[in-house]
Amino acid sequence: MTLALDKPRTPRRPAARRNNWELASWVFMRVSGVALLVLVLGHLLIMNILDGGVHRINWGFVAGRWSSPFWQFWDLAMLWLAEIHGGNGLRTIINDYARKDATRFWLKVLLYVSMVLILALGTFVIFTFDPNFDA
């Protein structure tokens, strides 16, 4: 593959980027993807397929699981990795298909706001959940 470079006297040549942000993003997708193979496929197997699947899930079932630090950590790790993995994928898709700069900008604002909301809410719920909730 040949590297496309502007000629030296091209007007307004963008400054050389000194960081490897996109490389880090590419590596993150693979590293988080491997972790999510275990976290998400395990989650789907337990919640949807084994032992009656979704039909046995209720508040008490969740309380039982989240009384264990193991599953709390599992779900917290899955939340963060999946949200950032998915958000980064959507960022790529927005970059690919948005034609106007303004569209691209506002779609990304929407994406980042939704990511912060979901990460904050999910983390808050996992850390403050009380299995002995008095109804």
Partner: peptide, 16 residues
């Protein structure tokens, strides 16, 4: 995932 985090957050509201 967006919808799923919202519905699971209801565990914090009430069991019902």
């Amino acid at each position: 995932l967006f919808a799923h985090v919202l519905d699971t957050a209801l565990v914090r509201v009430s069991p019902q």
